[in-house]
Structures are given as C-alpha cells and as structure tokens.
C-alpha cells in the first residue's frame, strides 16, 4: 500500500493526541483511579498549605468551647481542651503523608536492592537474604513496630523507620520474583554476551523492566503506612502530642466516646478516605500497567 509522504505527515500530526485528550482518555478508561488520585492530590494540597486552609490554630485552646459538638463555627466540634478538630485534622494530613512517603521510601530503598541482589546472583546469598527476610515476616507488623518504638523511643523518625522496616520484606520478595523472571530474557542474555557488567545489567536492563509492580505495590504500601501510623498513634506510642495526628487525636478522643463521639468519628473518616484512595489508585495502576488484567 503506497502512502505519500504528505498524508503520512498529516496522519502522524493528528495521531499525536494533546495532553488534554490523553488525560480525558485515561479518565474514561479508569474513572475510579483518576478520582482517587484527585482525592489524594486535594489532601496533599491541604497538607502543604495547612495554615491557609485550617480555620484555627490546631493548638489554640478555646476555653468557652470545651468538648463542643459540631457547629458552624467548629464544623467537626472541639476537643476536651477546646481545640478545633477540623484544624487538627487538616494539620494531621501532614504527618500522614510524611510517614507514608518516608516509610515507603525506606522500604523501597532497602528492600529493592536486597531483592535485586538475591534474584540476580541466586545461590547462597539468595538463600541467606530470603531466610533472614522470612524471619522478619514472622513478626506481626504492629508488634514489630511496637518493639522498635519501645526500644528506640517514640518520635516521628522512629515511627517512620519502624513502619518502613516492616515493609522491607514485601518489596524485596516482589523485586526478587521480578528479577528471577527477567534475567532469563533474551535482552539480558544479549547484554551478558556483549560483556556488560553485573551492575550495568541490573541497573540498566533489569530494574527498568521490574518497575511496574513496584510502583503498584508502593502505592498500596502508602495506604498501609498511613494505617500503621494511625494504629500506633491510637495506641499512644506514635508521634507524641501535642503534634496533631489522626491516630493520636483518636487516642485522646476515644475515652470520651460516649460524651463526645465526634472526636472519634472524624479522624477515623479521614484515615479511611486517604487509605481507600491509595488502595483504589494502586488497583487502577495495576490494571493499567499489567496487560494481563487489562484484558480480563
């Protein structure tokens, strides 16, 4: 079929869709994922510009409004020392995002290289790494995090580390399984044949192709980290008061469940919405990045 150059040029021009068109296409294909992403971006904006959005200082105590139920003035009510709950929740977004990002960062930074090394070199080093990780997996996440915080003390940094460490085996195993299947591919064999170093093969040929499942898992792990931080905060061993966090607000609010249920309802909803959004986004990414599920 003969196509003259002009038609071809015209075709390729119209065939490159604008960014807006592409965004619209993605939105049509994965409306839930795009919606979840929008919620996450809105909450991230609240976190970054908390002072702009929060109606009050999260620490300001209004002694005329102690344990006040939700009103127009305080839409989510006030706590036992008269602090505005809405403002505290808006500021709490900061801690949730920070813990999520740093914890997942730690898990990725430690877990991925471990999995890469284990899967690439196999043999004794693989066996050693995987058995140690098996031992890590045997500790229930929250109990392990509790133990770390107990030993190191409860600070924001230690909470982030503790949560990150509990997710290391997950990323290591995932990376390893990816590497095991990728290292048999022709292009990796070709790279080996041309004399590329192990390092170059791992970084240039294997890792880029192992990224998709890691991105999906990282998104889901963000949700897990937010949940874990809230859990530790609720148990009273997370980030310590007076820093506003969703978990510690629940820790302080829940003993007053009967008198002031709003103190327990709103922070829980906030956690639920953010975690659900991360999970929905992760699922949508999986569907888009994995051709198998896209077909199904």
């Amino acid at each position: 079929m003969a196509v003259d150059a002009q038609t071809l040029a015209a075709f390729s021009l119209t065939a490159t869709p604008s960014l807006a068109t592409r965004a619209r296409r993605v939105a049509r294909r994965a409306p839930v994922g795009v919606g979840a992403l929008a919620v996450i971006l809105i909450l991230a904006m609240l976190a970054i510009a908390a002072p702009v959005f929060a109606p009050y200082d999260p620490q300001a105590q209004d002694y005329n409004q102690l344990l006040h139920e939700p009103t127009l003035e305080h839409p989510f009510g006030t706590d036992r020392i008269g602090r505005d709950l809405l403002s505290r929740i808006i500021y709490g977004t900061r801690i949730s995002f920070m813990v999520g990002v740093v914890a997942v960062g730690v898990a990725l930074a430690v877990g991925t290289p471990l999995g890469l090394i284990a899967g690439y070199f196999r043999g004794a080093i693989d066996e050693l790494i995987m058995r140690i990780l098996d031992a890590f997996i045997a500790f229930p996440g929250i109990i392990f995090a509790l133990a770390i915080v107990a030993v190191l003390g409860s600070s924001l940094m230690n909470v982030m580390l503790a949560i990150g460490v509990t997710s290391v085996p997950l990323f290591a195993r995932l990376t390893r399984s990816q590497v095991l299947s990728l290292r048999q591919r022709d292009y990796v064999l070709a790279a080996t044949a041309t004399g590329a170093s192990d390092w170059r093969i791992m970084v240039r040929h294997i890792m880029p192709n192992a990224m998709s499942p890691l991105i999906v898992q990282a998104t889901l792990a963000l949700g897990f980290a937010v949940l874990a931080e809230a859990g530790l905060g609720y148990l009273g061993v997370g980030v310590q008061p007076p820093t506003p966090t969703w978990g510690s607000d629940l820790n302080q609010g829940s003993p007053l469940l009967e008198r002031a249920p709003w103190l327990s309802i709103a922070p829980g909803m906030a956690i639920f919405i953010l975690v659900l959004s991360f999970n929905l986004l992760g699922d949508a990414l999986r569907d888009q990045l994995d051709p198998h599920t896209r077909k199904a």
């Binding site: 949940l227 469940l257 327990s264 829980g268 956690i271 639920f272 659900l276 929905l280």
Partner: peptide
C-alpha cells in the same frame, strides 16, 4: 475495599458507639 482501608480500631470504636 472498605474492610482493608478502614482502621480496625476505628471500626471497633464505631461498633461500640
């Protein structure tokens, strides 16, 4: 999805309530 995203302790608190 709801069961995974909801903090267990919060679900418990709501049940108590």
């Amino acid at each position: 999805l709801g069961g995974v995203a909801m903090p267990a302790f919060w679900m418990g608190l709501m049940f108590i309530l």
